[in-house]
């Protein structure tokens, strides 16, 4: 191992990954530069904007203020782990259908924050959604269609659940 470097192993989006990195390397750079997961973006250096939000062991964190070594042995979910073009996650689908994004730069982080928001509170009111978005900044949308996107995602999740129940009952 190169002097001053450490091996960091993390389960990212269900896959074991590792890389040798400097102890000071930020998790966001580990994801982007070492693992080539460039869906997670950097919008500020002071953990205000939340463009870099990922899930670390199920909790939303700002990966620009976490060291890669702090994630050692942990589980990370990034936007790449949410869904793909063929099968979008309901949150991605909600953002698409309700125009919850414009330039799309903040969007991955915003969606990861929404994952966490809906885990804590699966049926938030509009006010609770707006408060739940406190950790992210979007400069394009004025947030209105982000709120609509989240509301739509909640419906899609509920729909999927009721279909599951329905199918389960039928089998």
């Amino acid at each position: 191992m190169e002097a001053g470097k450490r091996k960091v192993s993390v389960n990212v989006n269900g896959e074991g990954r590792s890389a040798e990195v400097e102890a000071r390397q930020l998790l966001v750079h580990y994801l982007r530069d070492e693992l080539h997961l460039t869906g997670t973006h950097i919008g500020c250096d002071t953990s205000q904007c939340g463009a870099c939000t990922v899930l670390l062991n199920g909790e939303a964190v700002k990966s620009c203020t976490v060291l890669a070594v702090q994630a050692q042995g942990g589980e990370v979910t990034t936007v790449e782990g949410l869904g793909n073009r063929e099968q979008l996650h309901p949150i991605q689908q909600g953002f698409w259908e309700k125009h919850g994004l414009q330039c799309g730069f903040c969007t991955p982080g915003v969606m990861m924050a929404v994952v966490s928001l809906l885990e804590d509170n699966p049926n938030p009111t509009e006010e609770e959604i707006r408060e739940g978005l406190e950790g992210v900044i979007c400069r394009c949308t004025g947030y209105q269609y982000i709120v609509s996107a989240v509301q739509h995602a909640i419906q899609l999740i509920a729909q999927a659940k009721s279909e599951e129940v329905h199918m389960g009952g039928g089998s």
């Binding site: 982007r32 950097i42 936007v79 979008l88 991955p108």
Partner: peptide, 21 residues
């Protein structure tokens, strides 16, 4: 109409300047 540009941006497949290697 839903935007054509969205699926790539929604799935982390956007290609911004800092993504270039």
């Amino acid at each position: 109409v839903k935007r054509k540009e969205d699926p790539k941006l929604l799935t982390g497949n956007g290609y911004f300047t800092d993504d270039i290697k």
